[in-house]
Amino acid sequence: MSYGARVWDENGNLIMDTTTFTYQVIWQGVVDFSGTVGTYTFNIPDFNPANCVFMIIPTRAQDVQSSETDGLGNSKSYPYVTTSVGQVVVRFRNPSSSAGTIGSRIVAKGYAIRYST
């Protein structure tokens, strides 16, 4: 018996097959910008941007922007993420932004995921 999921496109071509595609969560933790922390640096062994991704998922309903015209859009925006081998840096705003730019104030769960085919 095989396990996994398969997805076909509109032409019947197999485009994803998790019976041959695997992934592994190699790190998970809280990313909390609700206080005074402006930057998190996570040293994650085996993280490599060539075969890993870093995702952020908000954990509080108040951190989800209700519409594009939401006046608190910047404070509900996703943080700025940079990756390198063995490390992920998450900042509450783009480092090239002016000092007066409002940064993210979300509380989220972060995941580092390694994948292979």
Score class of each variant (00 low, 15 high):
residue 3 Y to P: 00
residue 3 Y to M: 12
residue 3 Y to R: 14
residue 5 A to Y: 07
residue 5 A to D: 05
residue 5 A to Q: 10
residue 7 V to P: 01
residue 8 W to I: 04
residue 8 W to G: 07
residue 8 W to R: 12
residue 8 W to E: 11
residue 9 D to P: 07
residue 10 E to M: 07
residue 11 N to C: 14
residue 14 L to M: 15
residue 14 L to A: 10
residue 14 L to N: 12
residue 14 L to Y: 08
residue 14 L to F: 10
residue 15 I to T: 14
residue 15 I to N: 09
residue 15 I to S: 12
residue 16 M to A: 15
residue 17 D to M: 09
residue 18 T to N: 14
residue 19 T to Q: 14
residue 20 T to S: 14
residue 20 T to C: 03
residue 20 T to K: 15
residue 21 F to L: 10
residue 22 T to R: 10
residue 22 T to I: 03
residue 23 Y to T: 14
residue 23 Y to R: 09
residue 23 Y to I: 06
residue 24 Q to R: 12
residue 24 Q to A: 10
residue 25 V to T: 13
residue 25 V to M: 07
residue 26 I to F: 01
residue 26 I to S: 06
residue 26 I to T: 08
residue 27 W to L: 03
residue 27 W to Y: 08
residue 28 Q to M: 05
residue 28 Q to P: 00
residue 29 G to T: 03
residue 29 G to V: 01
residue 29 G to S: 04
residue 30 V to I: 14
residue 32 D to R: 10
residue 32 D to A: 11
residue 32 D to E: 11
residue 33 F to M: 13
residue 33 F to Y: 12
residue 35 G to I: 06
residue 37 V to S: 10
residue 38 G to W: 01
residue 39 T to H: 11
residue 39 T to Q: 15
residue 40 Y to K: 11
residue 40 Y to S: 08
residue 40 Y to E: 13
residue 40 Y to D: 12
residue 41 T to E: 14
residue 43 N to E: 14
residue 43 N to L: 05
residue 44 I to C: 13
residue 44 I to Y: 09
residue 45 P to A: 14
residue 45 P to Y: 02
residue 46 D to V: 07
residue 47 F to M: 07
residue 47 F to A: 13
residue 47 F to I: 06
residue 48 N to H: 07
residue 48 N to A: 06
residue 48 N to R: 08
residue 49 P to F: 06
residue 49 P to M: 06
residue 51 N to W: 03
residue 52 C to K: 13
residue 52 C to T: 12
residue 53 V to S: 12
residue 55 M to I: 04
residue 56 I to R: 05
residue 57 I to T: 11
residue 58 P to M: 11
residue 59 T to G: 11
residue 60 R to T: 07
residue 61 A to Y: 05
residue 62 Q to F: 06
residue 62 Q to E: 15
residue 63 D to N: 15
residue 63 D to Y: 09
residue 64 V to W: 04
residue 65 Q to Y: 00
residue 65 Q to F: 01
residue 65 Q to N: 09
residue 66 S to D: 12
residue 66 S to L: 10
residue 67 S to C: 15
residue 68 E to W: 13
residue 69 T to P: 00
residue 70 D to V: 01
residue 70 D to G: 05
residue 71 G to P: 14
residue 72 L to K: 06
residue 73 G to N: 06
residue 73 G to E: 02
residue 77 S to V: 00
residue 77 S to M: 01
residue 78 Y to P: 01
residue 79 P to N: 02
residue 80 Y to E: 04
residue 81 V to G: 02
residue 82 T to P: 05
residue 82 T to N: 08
residue 84 S to R: 03
residue 85 V to F: 02
residue 87 Q to E: 05
residue 89 V to I: 13
residue 89 V to H: 00
residue 90 V to P: 05
residue 90 V to G: 02
residue 92 F to E: 05
residue 92 F to P: 00
residue 92 F to A: 02
residue 93 R to A: 03
residue 93 R to P: 00
residue 96 S to W: 01
residue 96 S to Q: 09
residue 97 S to C: 12
residue 97 S to K: 02
residue 97 S to N: 12
residue 98 S to A: 13
residue 99 A to K: 04
residue 100 G to A: 15
residue 103 G to F: 04
residue 105 R to W: 02
residue 106 I to G: 11
residue 106 I to P: 06
residue 107 V to D: 01
residue 108 A to V: 04
residue 108 A to Q: 08
residue 108 A to N: 00
residue 110 G to L: 05
residue 110 G to E: 02
residue 111 Y to V: 04
residue 112 A to R: 10
residue 112 A to D: 08
residue 113 I to Y: 02
residue 113 I to R: 09
residue 114 R to V: 09
residue 114 R to W: 03
residue 116 S to I: 05
residue 117 T to Y: 15
